[in-house]
Amino acid sequence: MIIDLNFIIFASIILLMVTGLYCLLVTKNLLRILIALEVMTKSVTLFLISSGYFSGNAVLTQALVITLIIIEVVVIVVACGIVIGVCVHNKNLDIKNMRKLKG
C-alpha cells in the first residue's frame, strides 16, 4: 500500500474543518461554539505546518504557528469571559435565549 503523506495530511485537514464547521452550525450551547472554533484552528495549524514542511521552509511556518497559538489563546480567554457574562445574566448557556437584540 502506497502511503502518500501529503494526501493523508490534506484529507485530515478537510475532515477537521468539516467537523468544526458542522458543529458551529448545529450547536445550541455557547461553550460548544468555542470548541468548534478550536477544532477549526487546529485544522488551520496543521495546514500551515504541513505546507511549510512540504515546501522545505518549515522554520518560517513554525514562526507563524507560534504567533497563531498565542493570539488564539487570548481570543479564547476573552470569549470565555463574554460567555460567563452572558450566563450570569441569562442563568443558562442556551443560545436560544440570546434574543434581546431584534430587528
Binding site: T45, Y53, A58, I66, I69, V73, I76, C80
Partner: peptide, 23 residues
C-alpha cells in the same frame, strides 16, 4: 515529527494545557 520542535512544545503547553484550564 515534522521537524518543528519549538512550535510543538508551545502547542502542547499552551493549547493542551492553558486552553483546557480556561475552558
Amino acid at each position: 515529527l515534522l521537524g518543528t520542535w519549538i512550535a510543538a512544545v508551545i502547542e502542547l503547553s499552551v493549547c493542551a494545557g492553558m486552553i483546557t484550564v480556561v475552558f
